[in-house]
């Protein structure tokens, strides 16, 4: 009801077109740029025992406006190797997880595209279904499966494959399992869309011209599905880099990722400025792949 009313109002307004067009920009401004600017601002402050626990950048006294920028927080990140190693480990885990998601997700998307139209919807539904349960509960369920006297170890021991429980929980392996499991749907769905759009007569043509299965895969199919693969990889890679919950619950004491470092700065050290600097650098690291993706998309759109 409210929707139709809104539509009517929009139609009445003469400048409605600009109004609609401005919505995404307003969204970007409100929910991305403004929060980022606040974080960016705090990263130049100094930690204090106060509410809120950092210094003000601007001060006005005796008709003088003073801006005090503290860049020490960024130097601090360079000084201590903890931050560099946490960034690297986060990037490594995110990259490997993305690759694993692609390895599992591509065949799954392919299988869904090539199933009968009636079962296709059911299969897609099954991909999305787990996300109807809380993410936290699903990660907790993995604790039950992976722990020493958990489901997996008990099963493997009962069929005699192993005689001592495998230590999986609290290792990096468990972190990979958790991330791949959680983000797999984000890889499958864009690839599925891309594969649906492919003109399959092209593959037949390649076959007719004598291309082997592998040649078809790498020379025809993958290039045609490239957009979906890149989109899926971005959707998995970007949130995995800053992932906190999965390594915290499934990882061991040595899986110190950037999310954990952020938490420690914020909660254990009560140093909001350094925490903000860590977050700013993380964003800068993520901007590179996003820019690449954006440029790729533009090129694609220009070509077609």
């Amino acid at each position: 009801m409210s929707e139709s009313r809104q539509n009517k109002r929009r139609r009445k307004l003469p400048s409605s077109k600009y109004l609609v067009l401005s919505v995404p920009y307003l969204w970007l401004l409100l929910f991305f740029l403004a929060p980022f600017f606040i974080v960016f601002k705090i990263s130049f402050a100094e930690a204090q025992i106060a509410i809120p626990p950092f210094s003000e950048l601007l001060s006005y006294a005796d008709e003088q406006l003073q801006i005090l920028l503290n860049v020490g927080n960024y130097f601090y990140l360079i000084d201590d190797d903890l931050y560099a190693s946490a960034y690297l480990l986060s990037l490594k885990i995110a990259a490997i997880s993305t690759f694993l998601c692609l390895l599992i997700g591509f065949p799954m998307a392919w299988a869904i595209v090539h199933s009968s139209p009636s079962s296709r919807n059911i299969l897609l539904m099954l991909i999305i279904l787990p996300s109807w349960t809380s993410f936290l509960i699903r990660v907790y369920a993995w604790i039950g499966i992976l722990r020493n006297n958990g489901f997996l170890n008990n099963f493997l021991m009962s069929i005699g494959v192993i005689d001592k429980p495998l230590q999986i929980l609290h290792t990096d392996t468990a972190v990979y399992i958790g991330i791949v499991y959680t983000y797999l749907p984000f890889m499958i769905l864009p690839i599925y869309t891309a594969l649906m759009r492919i003109d399959y007569s092209l593959i037949e043509a390649a076959r007719d011209l004598g291309a082997s299965t592998l040649t078809v895969l790498f020379k025809v199919l993958l290039p045609l599905a490239k957009g979906g693969i890149i989109a899926g990889s971005m959707l998995v890679f970007i949130p995995s880099v800053g992932e906190f919950v999965i390594p915290e619950l499934l990882g061991g004491p040595d899986s110190i990722l950037i999310g954990k470092v952020l938490w420690q700065e914020f909660f254990n050290n009560r140093d909001w400025p350094v925490a903000s600097a860590v977050a700013t650098i993380m964003l800068l690291l993520l901007v590179a792949p996003i820019m690449y993706f954006h440029r790729y998309q533009k090129r694609e759109m220009g070509a077609s």
């Binding site: 930690a47 025992i49 201590d80 903890l82 004491p253 040595d254 110190i256 420690q264 254990n268 050290n269 009560r270 140093d271």
Partner: peptide, 18 residues
């Protein structure tokens, strides 16, 4: 003091990592 508390968190992190 903030400095001591930070050093403590830091060495605790290092120690857990070993």
């Amino acid at each position: 003091p903030a400095k001591v508390s930070r050093e403590m968190t830091r060495s605790w992190t290092r120690f857990l990592k070993n």
